[in-house]
Amino acid sequence: MIDAILHYAFLQRALAAGLFIALACAVLGVFLLLRKDAMIGHGLSHVAFAGVAVGLAVGWMPLLSALVVSVAGALGIMKLKESAGLHGDTAIAIFSSVGLAVGIILASVSGRFNVALFGYLFGDVLAIEPLEVGLSIALAILVVGLVALNYQRLLFMTFDREAARVAGVPVRRLDALITVLAAVTVVLGMKIVGILMVAALLVIPAAAGLQAARSFRSAVLGACAVAESSVIAGLLAAYVLDWPASGTIVLAAFLLFGILFLLRRRG
């Protein structure tokens, strides 16, 4: 198996992109779960679908068009959420269904509802191109870097928003940061596990990290460990068993989550 990684460039690219992207998803995911914002990843992935369709229709790199559309969608969800009269996840539900609607119309009208789109829906990390690998790694580093830079303030406002505000933490600006970063990680994760499973990368490793954590630091480190192990184990298993990489990575993450969950229940 190690031989395969050493020999095949496509496996190396998948592994490199996967490790960095999964790390960004895990770090951000811990904050999203504790903010009770787990569904935003799911909603934004459908917005990203519209972005991919735009890219395929007009001939841009779908990763970039999805990035632009998702970030715009994320800010839209935030604005709609803040306006009075909308409860809970209503804004997310509206944006995710409109995202799918736009995507399917664009794909149908432009006649591009084909294999390429299928790859974005279900993930096709083994087909990732060198340019996309570079871009993904750069963006993943950006996400982790911005979270690290604001770590204490994000933690404070997640734990006690009111006290954080009094301490001078710019909570609304940081809300926007988290939401935009969620959009970026969703687009990145889409390359690995596809639009339909991308929420899994944000939620499952973070949920696993939270199982046994006695501190916030250990929760983040645990989530990262689970994310990285899932990518490595998932890719190798997919190669050996000839299974789709995306589904195998998600199942590997779920398996690790299940083990940690049961361990906590017993311990």
């Binding site: 303030r153 301490a167 916030f216």
Partner: peptide, 14 residues
């Protein structure tokens, strides 16, 4: 998941 130390630290470092 926050230790007592982390709760105090988040206010200081914010």
């Amino acid at each position: 998941p926050a230790s007592a130390r982390e709760v105090v630290a988040m206010a200081l470092r914010s």
